[in-house]
Amino acid sequence: MWQFFHRLSSPPYFYGFAGRLVPWLAVPAALLALAGLYGGLVLAPPDYQQGESYRIIFIHVPSAWMSLFIYMVMATAGAISLIWHIKLWEAVAVSSAPIGAAFTFLALVTGSLWGKPMWGTWWVWDARLTSELILLFLYLGVIALYGAVEDKRTAARAVAILALVGVVNIPIIHYSVEWWNTLHQGPTVTKFDAPSIHVSMLIPLLLMALACKLYYVVVLLVRVRHVLVDREQSSRWVAELVK
């Protein structure tokens, strides 16, 4: 097991392994997304108060979960790359940022679209919404910092430190609805009690969450492969690859 991880850290080995893995994950991701969307948009009953508009949670909630999850992956990969100086994990950290930014953006936009008819406003500066917006800026900061530094080794190190500094925001986002009075409602699924959502709505929601997770892994693998080839341009395995 340990040996396998060691071998996986070698860029040429990872390049081949990830390339073979992508189709095996992409197809289940697409199938799960189709099942989740069908279950959520067609099969699930309307909500007792919100009617049909609640269906935006099938996009909004998985995106918001992913925005936090991807940040944790990015920060962990950053920590590993700082401690062990492994190029693969540097690539994982920098490749996660654009995907995380996309999910954060999606969560903010869908929340805003739902907020207008339901709350009566597009946006309020409450603790949950503000901390999620800060998360988007953190992702954008990571992307900009990596792009701005010419030497990619140094850039990856700077990015890892920025990602680790921003980690404090993650518990703040999650607990903001419990620590402070907010307009955003409290957690429905991710709490210790039983989820306060009917099972006919919970199943498509979890399917969508799983689909988003697989989608992230697929896009991550593809991006990491590109970063590795780009960073190792002068090495022998890349030369053999393009031949």
């Binding site: 009953p45 909500d47 919100q50 339901m118 406003t121 307009l183 409602q185 429905t188 009917h198």
Partner: peptide
């Protein structure tokens, strides 16, 4: 000057609520 509705964290079909 402004009234916003605060949604709670419960989601259920109308029949269950009834």
């Amino acid at each position: 000057e402004e009234v916003l509705a605060k949604h709670d964290e419960n989601y259920m079909p109308p029949e269950v609520a009834d």
